[in-house]
């Protein structure tokens, strides 16, 4: 074939942009994480590992790591299991499956920031629908009895619901005990529909003959067929779903910035928000860059784990 110059023209713009917009920034961040640079300064000083030491030692950053990991450890398992569960239920329905699929996928499409405000208002301690509904149950005898465990002969005051009726219900986003959980709840609400759709795609890829074979082999109950066929056949989907959900939940920003700004008392101080607050709002580029680098490290670790699992299952096909 005649060598043409076309390939060069085709790939060069992409290569330049990749270097400029993806690779160079990583090096810039890596370099600046060892400096005390601020935007507007004429120069900077090398400060060695000071920024990383700060991340390791200061309590606010410790809280950041704890909050980020807690958030991921709440959101990932729950949204993955909800995604799998709803996919299994929907795929086994005789009718109406498409409807649930559309409904559960809606949050994936919707502007998260806008929906965050709606949740904020829904969870408002005074005029929010959630607390209003909880409160209204306190006056209905059987609801109160059921939820406080009174019907089991328990002391209503020791139960969560009885306590809420007596002392009012949580402030949710304003209470450091509940804020991270509430943000995580919104994250789960938003993410599980995506996982569901991935699992649905994974399920359609499981050959029907395999289920029939397992039935012939004596797997009589749906439970046995699930563990013999469905679960292992979804292996590649599990790996992908868990990785992408982890990476996405590490990146959560919209809800934190709009609803809690990291508070109360740093209980929702998640990594990307911390990076934004330190690096961009407070112009502490060094610390912000160090957070960037650590964040990239997490993402890299997650992806390499994924690659490891994908390769281990190479003999599927």
């Amino acid at each position: 074939m005649v060598q043409s110059r076309a390939p060069i023209w085709f790939v060069t713009p992409a290569i330049i942009l990749m270097f400029l917009l993806l690779i160079a920034p990583v090096f810039v961040a890596a370099t600046l994480s060892f400096t005390d640079y601020s935007l507007g300064d004429p120069g900077f000083n090398w400060v060695g590992a000071e920024n990383y030491e700060a991340l390791a030692n200061r309590s606010s950053y410790k809280k950041m790591f704890i909050a980020s990991l807690t958030y991921v450890l709440i959101v990932v398992p729950i949204s993955v299991l909800l995604g799998l569960g709803s996919a299994l239920l929907i795929s086994s329905l005789r009718f109406g499956g498409e409807l649930y699929k559309a409904v559960f996928f809606l949050p994936v499409m919707a502007t998260l920031l806008a929906m965050a405000f709606v949740w904020e208002f829904t969870l408002d301690p005074i005029v929010g629908v959630v607390n209003e509904t909880l409160r209204s149950g306190c006056d209905v005898g059987w609801v109160y009895s059921l939820l406080t465990g009174l019907w089991l002969g328990l002391d209503p005051a020791t139960s969560w619901y009885g306590h809420g009726c007596a002392e009012d219900f949580p402030l949710w986003l304003g209470d450091k005990k509940y804020a991270l959980g509430t943000i995580a709840f919104i994250g789960i609400w938003q993410a599980f529909g995506f996982n569901m759709v991935l699992y649905l795609a994974g399920l359609t890829a499981v050959p029907r003959e395999l289920y029939q074979a397992s039935e012939m082999d004596g797997a009589d109950s749906a439970w046995e067929r699930f563990w013999l066929v469905t679960w292992p056949m979804l292996g590649p989907t599990h790996v992908f779903v868990v990785t992408i959900t982890s990476i996405r939940s590490f990146q959560v920003f919209d809800t934190v910035e709009a609803l809690t700004r990291g508070g109360p008392s740093k209980s929702t101080y998640l990594m990307i928000y911390a990076m934004f607050e330190k690096g961009i709002q407070q112009n502490l580029i060094g610390v912000g860059s160090a957070i960037t680098i650590i964040f990239l490290g997490f993402v890299l670790a997650l992806t390499l784990t994924q690659v490891y699992f994908v390769n281990r299952r190479v003999h599927y096909s």
Binding site: I15, M18, P25, I247, F253, G279, I280, G288, S289
Partner: peptide, 21 residues
């Protein structure tokens, strides 16, 4: 290979250096 490598980098993560540039 470069493309695959760049798939690893979420743009949100490198927002700070991009912003500086």
């Amino acid at each position: 290979g470069l493309v695959i490598f760049c798939l690893l980098i979420p743009v949100h993560a490198i927002a700070l250096p991009l912003y500086l540039m």
